[in-house]
Amino acid sequence: MEENHLKNSCRALLIGGSAGSLQVLFNLFPAIKPDFTFAVIIVLHRRNSGDSALSELLSTKTLAHTLEAEDKDPILPGKFYLAPADYHLLIEKNGTFSLDYSEKVNFSRPSIDVTFESAAEIYGPSLVGMLLSGANEDGTKGLLTIKKMGGKTVVQNPETAQMPFMPQHAISHHAADYIYNIIEMADFINNLR
């Protein structure tokens, strides 16, 4: 039992969001205890500007520094990473990021599906995927892949989302293990091991 628990301990938490998700992160992050032992990887649909103001903004809300993921960066536990604007973010088997400037997926680059699917393959059951507010179908496929590979999925309760379409789309496609509001999400993250 103990061994099983260890094997499936969370190595990465992925958070995907689109329109209306930034406010969720601003409320969620201050509630996360800083002693977490997994990497937090955030994929947000954002404007195609190269500046990293968003990661600085997120840093002010978290106790840990939010880094914009760079090509071939090692993924370290206890850190927040943000997918850079206008690149897809992929995870390599050796625990590093790689970036990809291929076609948009779901009209988006970065696409949540792309990162979620890539991570599901690497982390399997040691992965949690979280999908927030948005007005796009992105994320559903990725959550389904995470589930298929044994990971857990959390979707923001659409009633609490500024843009309910994206979380509702995931729920309608049976991609959600848990449907939570922000306080429940923080609780869930703080109890992740």
């Binding site: 992929l90 995870i91 390599e92 088997k93 790689s98 990809d100 291929s102 792309v114 699917e117 890539s118 690497i122």
Partner: peptide
């Protein structure tokens, strides 16, 4: 080549 991207392609 980076494996993750190659596999996806």
């Amino acid at each position: 080549y980076s494996k993750a991207s190659l596999k996806r392609r």
